[in-house]
Amino acid sequence: MTNPQTATGEDVVDVLTADHREVEMLFVELESRQGTPEHRRQLADVVIAELVRHSIAEEAYVYPTARKALPDGDQVADHEISEHADAERTMKELESVDPSDPRFDQLLSHLTSTIRHHIQDEESDLFPRLRAAVAREEMVELAGKVQAAKKSAPTRPHPAAPDRPPANKLLAPGAGLVDRLRDALSGRPTSMEKLREKQR
């Protein structure tokens, strides 16, 4: 069976950069402060779910690759994981704050600046270096692994969860299953598709 990434030639950087663009669009919409408080809450939930899935996939596959392929890979990976941890603590707080509370916009502002800095770091430094150091076939294979990890990853922040293999790879699918059950029961949207369906 052909891996869809192999057929399209997308590598892991293409997949992660597309995630970055999607999150940025959500940030811009949230920053516009348009829509009802309920809509803003749902947009924040989608952002949180997207960021958690993205982070889990990076921690499981991208950062271990950086550790092996780059001379300073350990420092790079540790720095990125530390930024994820900061963002995850902010998302955990944001998850329980009502959009009409002034703290909602304060937390959102902290989250957007943290994530934008993180994206800038990755796209200007880590991603080009990975492309230079890792064989194209492996980068394409990593795209498939990242996409698969995102499908079973948690959709809610778990700041105390392990962020390195092998523990994160073992525990993330179970936490993801529990999160998806909670999302289904509560009607919490975790993607733009689900949010649009809910609005119909």
Results as ranks from 00 to 15, higher is better:
residue 1 M to I: 05
residue 4 P to G: 14
residue 6 T to V: 12
residue 6 T to F: 05
residue 7 A to G: 09
residue 8 T to N: 14
residue 12 V to Y: 11
residue 14 D to G: 10
residue 14 D to F: 02
residue 14 D to C: 05
residue 15 V to E: 08
residue 17 T to F: 07
residue 19 D to P: 08
residue 19 D to Y: 07
residue 21 R to M: 03
residue 25 M to V: 04
residue 28 V to Q: 06
residue 29 E to H: 05
residue 32 S to Q: 11
residue 35 G to E: 02
residue 35 G to N: 02
residue 36 T to N: 03
residue 37 P to H: 03
residue 38 E to T: 14
residue 38 E to G: 09
residue 39 H to R: 08
residue 46 V to T: 09
residue 49 A to Y: 01
residue 49 A to W: 01
residue 50 E to T: 10
residue 50 E to C: 12
residue 51 L to R: 08
residue 52 V to P: 04
residue 54 H to Q: 07
residue 55 S to E: 02
residue 56 I to E: 08
residue 57 A to V: 05
residue 59 E to C: 01
residue 60 A to Q: 06
residue 62 V to F: 11
residue 63 Y to W: 14
residue 66 A to V: 02
residue 71 P to D: 12
residue 72 D to K: 10
residue 75 Q to S: 00
residue 76 V to C: 06
residue 81 I to S: 05
residue 84 H to Q: 02
residue 87 A to D: 05
residue 87 A to S: 13
residue 90 T to A: 06
residue 92 K to C: 03
residue 94 L to C: 08
residue 96 S to E: 14
residue 97 V to Y: 14
residue 99 P to V: 08
residue 101 D to L: 09
residue 102 P to Q: 06
residue 102 P to M: 03
residue 104 F to P: 14
residue 104 F to L: 04
residue 105 D to L: 04
residue 108 L to D: 15
residue 110 H to Q: 15
residue 114 T to M: 05
residue 114 T to W: 00
residue 116 R to P: 06
residue 117 H to A: 15
residue 120 Q to N: 12
residue 120 Q to W: 06
residue 120 Q to C: 08
residue 120 Q to K: 11
residue 121 D to Q: 13
residue 127 F to I: 05
residue 127 F to T: 02
residue 129 R to A: 14
residue 132 A to G: 10
residue 133 A to F: 04
residue 135 A to E: 15
residue 137 E to R: 13
residue 142 L to R: 14
residue 145 K to V: 03
residue 146 V to F: 11
residue 147 Q to W: 01
residue 148 A to W: 13
residue 149 A to F: 08
residue 149 A to G: 13
residue 150 K to P: 00
residue 150 K to A: 00
residue 151 K to V: 10
residue 152 S to A: 04
residue 153 A to H: 03
residue 155 T to F: 11
residue 156 R to M: 13
residue 160 A to F: 00
residue 160 A to T: 05
residue 160 A to P: 01
residue 164 R to Y: 04
residue 166 P to D: 08
residue 168 N to G: 07
residue 170 L to P: 09
residue 171 L to Q: 01
residue 171 L to A: 01
residue 174 G to M: 06
residue 174 G to W: 09
residue 178 V to R: 08
residue 183 D to A: 12
residue 185 L to C: 11
residue 186 S to Y: 10
residue 187 G to L: 04
residue 188 R to V: 01
residue 190 T to R: 04
residue 190 T to L: 02
residue 190 T to S: 07
residue 192 M to W: 08
residue 193 E to L: 03
residue 198 K to W: 00
residue 198 K to Q: 13
